[in-house]
Write a protein that binds this DNA or RNA. Sequence first.
RNA 1: GGCGGAGUAGCUCAGUCGGUAGAGCAGCGGAAUCAUAAUCCGCGUGUCGGGGGUUCGAGUCCCUUCUCCGCUACCA
Length: 514
Amino acid sequence: MADKQFYITTAISYPNGAPHIGHAYEVLATDALARFKRLDGFDVMFLTGTDEHGQKIQQTAARQNRTARELVDEMAPLFQEMVRSLGCSNDDFIRTTEPRHYATVQALWKRMEAAGDIYLSKYAGWYSVRDEAYYAEDEIEDREGKKYSTKTGTPVEWVEEESYFFKLASYQEKLLALYESQPDFIGPNERRNEILSFVKGGLQDLSISRTTFDWGIPVPDAPGHIMYVWVDALTNYLSATGWPDAGASRAKYWPADLHVIGKDIVRFHAVYWPAFLMSAGLPLPKRVYGHGFLFNRGEKMSKSVGNVISPASLIETYGVDQVRYFFLREVPFGQDGNYSHEAIINRINADLANDLGNLAQRSLSMINKNCEGRVPVPGAFTPEDHEILAAADAILAEARSHHDVQAINKALDAIWRVVADANRYFAAQAPWGLKKTDPERMGTVLYVTAELLRQFGILTQPYMPTAAPKLLDLLSIPADQRSFASLAKRLSGGVELPPPAPVFPRYVETEAEG
RNA sequence: GGCGGAGUAGCUCAGUCGGUAGAGCAGCGGAAUCAUAAUCCGCGUGUCGGGGGUUCGAGUCCCUUCUCCGCUACCA
């Protein structure tokens, strides 16, 4: 049991502005992965948080005439509230401004320094504050006397500073060996190929300290130097385990099993991060997975286009479980996805209200009216009964294999294929017609259907942490019989059920909306 | 410029070792009435981006070409 641990993380959010759908998507998907593992018997640690240092925060705060500290203390709770409102089950929320994080980052730095991988040199070049990146002479252009990055269009300024460097170049071979020996270190495959070609193309040493601003973690024994964003931010995954305190209660969780991140920061997680850890002599995470981006009707969400929708308003409009279900089912995790009001409604009504919700409602109300509100005691099963139950029994193994590669939408497809089968089963058996002709057979059909609902209820808990338990409540399933281990134990006949109530309401368009 | 990926039914996409093109959604018709106007059944003649080639036979292999996307590099 001690070996069945699972440490999963999201990237930490940069709280320079309010949380948006991208933040919500990443954390809700990671939550589904974490919940699945918990239900599957793992001792899970699920971490998310905020990355609160850097020049952008400092400048935003300055514009508002206050300190960076004041700014992040106001912003971080917005992210915590978003995570909470999405029904997420994170075990911790780390902020990079916390003392525990400072301690870990500085310890990691010292380890890398002791390994001989850090040296002092000088860095000069065109720096974009917004991108937090340096650009070469030919990567910038002159526009009305000012310099801009040709790549991102952001303003750049000439910066010359003393900087500590990390000997990244010397890790090229070790990294390639890592990708070779651990083929699933990077997912999905497209991202792996990109990283592979990037590293094969040669690595340069990395500047890992800054002296031009001071909102960051100080470099040990180097006044004036603060740490580069990625040394600081990536290390949060380690900080939450209490490292370097080997006696910390969470020390056992390292190395992380899965870092869930956006596809834009795969390089930092798949190149820099393992190199830092190798340097410090620490075990490496098992896998890094880069998910795609979400677009509103094919367009990137932006204030100028006027299609900005906050996670909070989505939840308010559709409901938290519905929002979670939609994004997890509709978008293949790892690919970019689209969302629109129409698409969300279609999923809510077709999959949740019609297919699953209505199946529950029609079968449970028949039990309520015709079986004294108790789970019927089934008679002998027919081949049809065995077949549909076998289909349900097969879901877990398939869902598991999809979750192993973060193919969340495929796991949901697998469940809903059987939901569709269950509707066909119910229609074919037509228990309402058996009421007078063969009440015992009717009871058996209703029993089988209730058992299928139990399976669906248990299996959908990772995705819909509010609605799925409601469905299980309607079946009087005790709290301690809701894990995947309980899937194999059939519903017991004779148990009293509460009156049925709709679990997934239809979304009805109101006049005002249109 | 280099590397990689993708172009298949109105929409989103599956198509394993080459063997007469599939699913879901939407649409049309029917059945049923237990149920959240829900459910079930039936209905798809698609230049599989274009062109050429290999093969008895190619969406599936090879060449070429067009378009889109990602990563990356960049010319004195």
